[in-house]
């Protein structure tokens, strides 16, 4: 249970970072924190105590393995996370070129 709570704590740390930081890059880092807390949670969900990697050989009983599905999900989600992070950082770089700063208080052309 402690591990799950730590995961949730990591999620909240990331959310706090996104909501309070003023620097574009730190916001991106906060988002990554949230992302990885969920990846950890997914892997934990699939974990079986003392379980092995699920490689089934002929004649072996199909027990004692960890759940492979969350691992496949995490791999997919990591790739998607890579794409979102790359996109975010690309936009952050373009913003820096236009405004000369990463401070969101100075990037305020729009009213919201």
């Amino acid at each position: 249970m402690t591990l799950y709570l730590l995961c949730f704590l990591l999620f909240l740390v990331g959310l706090y970072g996104v909501l309070t930081r003023r620097n574009l890059i730190k916001i991106v880092i906060g988002l990554s924190f949230m992302e990885f807390s969920i990846f950890l949670l997914l892997v934990l969900i699939g974990y079986v105590k003392g379980g092995e990697a699920p490689i089934l050989q002929p004649g072996m009983p199909a027990t004692g393995f960890v759940d492979p599905l969350p691992q496949a999900m995490v791999l997919t989600a990591i790739v998607i996370g890579l794409a979102t992070n790359a996109m975010l950082l690309a936009i952050a770089i373009r913003l820096y070129k236009k405004y000369g700063t990463f401070d969101i208080r100075k990037i305020n052309q729009l009213k919201g």
């Binding site: 996104v18 574009l24 916001i27 988002l31 979102t84 996109m87 975010l88 936009i91 952050a92 373009r94 913003l95 236009k98 990037i107 305020n108 052309q109 729009l110 919201g112």
Partner: peptide, 11 residues
């Protein structure tokens, strides 16, 4: 404006 809107939207 476009970049700022996109960043907001992305976060």
């Amino acid at each position: 404006e476009e970049l700022e809107a996109s960043f907001k939207y992305q976060v």
